[in-house]
């Protein structure tokens, strides 16, 4: 689980071009959207593709992402329970 969290942090920084943010800056329970990392709806769509491409999880409705992408913690939990690759 810790490895997955670390991996997610690295991926998010890379995929979303968060140049000024280091892995250490992201806490497991920090909100990813809004006040935390400041991600927005376009980033959510990027993360949906990441779930599909890297973990074999398909979300049909972007609204489902809201609960999953609350934090690194929630993302890691969802991925470990639902991943197909």
């Amino acid at each position: 689980m810790e490895a997955l969290k670390q991996e997610l942090k690295e991926k998010i920084i890379d995929v979303l071009n968060l140049e000024d943010i280091a892995v250490e800056d992201v806490n497991d329970n920090d909100p990813l959207f809004g006040d935390g990392l400041g991600l927005d709806s376009i980033d959510a769509l990027e993360l949906i593709v990441m779930l599909d491409k890297d973990y074999g999880i398909k979300l049909a409705d972007p609204k489902e992402g809201k609960a999953i992408f609350q934090s690194i913690e929630t993302m890691a939990k969802y991925i470990s329970e639902n991943r197909t690759k």
């Binding site: 995929v15 376009i42 769509l45 990027e46 593709v49 599909d52 491409k53």
Partner: peptide, 9 residues
């Protein structure tokens, strides 16, 4: 497949 929206936008 696996396309993301940012560059399209």
């Amino acid at each position: 497949e696996f396309l993301t929206p940012t560059s399209f936008i």
